[in-house]
Design a protein around this nucleic acid. Structure first.
Lengths: 332, 332
DNA sequence: ACGGTTCAGTGATACGATTCAGTGAACCGC
DNA sequence: GCGGTTCACTGAATCGTATCACTGAACCGT
């Protein structure tokens, strides 16, 4: 790790070529095999590697993919981000991970920031899919959406949230739950998430008495929110729109001496790896994170390599029944 | 989000000033209040913001802090990274998160890469604290080490692993465990981690019969490793050098029909938030992640703002007793 | 031998800022 | 009214690469 790096000019000087020739040679363009070899040797000798910043300024490309996460407080989104980042790495692309903190305003700013950093593409988990800037953004670089669909993307891995919600609520209803608390992640100033809308519609259709509250993803915060809900509302079941919020319900139930699923049933959403380890295991809606990661990476790679075909992958949910949901007792 | 951004020249033209003056004005340097205001107005009008890439090339600074993580497969390290990233954000600094995948060779490459990206500083969780490149790196930019100490840093948050290991092993021994399996994270080609060395020394001192194996952090992999250990070696206790590996032991015990702590005691290391939610709760060594995050962010901010005083924070561990460790039964 | 094509390589410019050295004017005390 | 500062600003160089428009030479078939 030398103090001062060699520049392209020094390599040019060493080989007696022009900087332009060196630039071409190292990228395997327009030069004779013999010269390429000579340049490569000189570059290795001097320990030269192109400066990514200068390259980005001149060419407008960086080889980096931006990862715009909805909220990294969510353990599942952490797994997703790490998984995608690793997947991209295997395709020799680096990723720049940024967090929107669940705030649509910040989401816009961060998207802007990623573009300013000249990322070659972005994988986004949109908080506000209806935001006006998406189409403009998509025109300036390839965007892959994960989760909800947005306009103009080069590809999407869309979760069938409608189906996921139906799966969850029908399961609860089939076991006799009618009075259900719904805990949805706190988001700054975006009232109508598509998924929330589905909850309302399905609850209506199934004749359920739901009460919606919001909670942050963090365990401590979620526990506090869940504590209040469990103590005051006495629902027979809690449907959490993220496994990490459900973890808060487990903690709150423990504090209150309530048994799951004896006193209250809990349903999650995501199937984070830890959900199977809890006692009882968290019954949840599984999206198959590995499949999502693979699809997102594949679509991004295709789009960044100039693939023009717009791909649309729909991720189907599966109900993963464990032990946290039981038949509603008549008592509550 | 305009298609094409305004440049500093356009702002200069609009105000009748030179580009240099605009550059100074927007950074609050060397210009009259009145001109500053005029420039700010014109910049706002044109939607101008300095291009971070061009700025990085010209000034050598980016305002970004690099986060070099040992292995993001570890849930605890994920929390740490997200926490630090969030902490830096609150100080108006963005972070570039990169993963070394537990590989010292990669660690070096990634550090190099971060430096090439002109990060203003790096927070690293060193895999190989003895690697030769650290001092050189530290001379070219402020480095904060988290975990193990490395030479030449601008500051460190060091875990007292010696004490942590002692705490864990003494606790196990006090409860009558002598035959102990130790599960330590898999690392490519670095035999002697400081923490591992402490384990050996302490085991010797306490007269314990330990058997060391390595395991990846991922739940599935850790479960497989733990399965083999539990089935073959029949230790009375397992000491995992990361909570996420301990989670694998829980899963394996479940598969094998072993009860924790009835058949085997499990001790973790880190105290990830989920550890308290398991049944039984995971007895573990708590490093106080919030304190680490705050200290790391504080040290980095101080160093990046030109603070010259080298700060050294030692993080003391605390044994967090839950239910996963019980008195050794005479049977096994 | 000739016009046309390809090939290997060059020189200059662009990318969009920062920064250094310098300049004219205003202002200072004496 | 004079030398010396300070102030506000400018012009030009710089950062390190990519890329565009050329050029001279070699090579082609006829």
């Amino acid at each position: 790790m030398p103090r001062k790096r060699a520049t392209i000019r020094e390599v040019a000087q060493a080989t007696g070529l022009s900087p332009a020739a060196v630039s071409y040679a190292l990228r395997g363009l327009q030069v004779s095999e013999e010269t390429k070899e000579r340049v490569r040797a000189a570059a290795a000798e001097l320990g030269y590697e192109a400066d990514p910043i200068a390259r980005a300024l001149a060419s407008g490309r960086t080889g980096m993919i931006g990862l715009l996460c909805g909220s990294l407080e969510d353990l599942w989104q952490q797994s997703l981000a790490v998984g995608i980042s690793r997947g991209l790495r295997e395709k020799d692309r680096y990723s720049l991970i940024l967090d929107a903190f669940g705030d649509p305003a910040r989401e816009r700013a961060v998207a802007q920031q990623l573009r300013d950093q000249r990322v070659d593409g972005m994988i986004v988990q949109p908080i506000d899919p209806a935001a006006a800037f998406w189409p403009e953004l998509c025109e300036s670089l390839p965007v892959i959406a994960v989760g909800d669909s947005i306009a103009g993307t080069a590809g999407e891995v869309v979760f069938d949230n409608r189906r996921g919600v139906t799966l969850a609520l029908e399961h609860l209803r089939a076991l006799g739950h009618h009075r259900i608390a719904v805990l949805t992640p706190t988001r700054a100033s975006t009232p109508d998430r598509p998924a929330d809308v589905h909850v309302m519609a399905e609850a209506e259709r199934l004749g359920l008495d739901i009460q919606v509250a919001t909670s942050p993803h963090g365990l401590a915060d979620a526990t506090a929110v869940a504590h209040d809900i469990l103590a005051a509302k006495e629902p027979s079941a809690v449907f959490c729109f993220a496994d990490s919020i459900a973890y808060g319900v487990y903690a709150a139930a423990q504090e209150l001496g309530l048994s799951i699923p004896g006193d209250v049933s809990v349903m999650g959403y995501d199937n984070h790896p830890m959900s199977g380890l809890l006692t009882p295991g968290l019954t949840t809606v599984d999206w198959g994170i590995d499949g999502i990661v693979r699809a997102a990476v594949r679509l991004m790679a295709a789009a960044a390599d100039g693939g023009t075909r717009r791909r649309h992958v729909v991720q189907a949910p599966a109900l993963r029944e464990r032990g946290s949901v039981a038949r509603a007792s008549a008592l509550r």
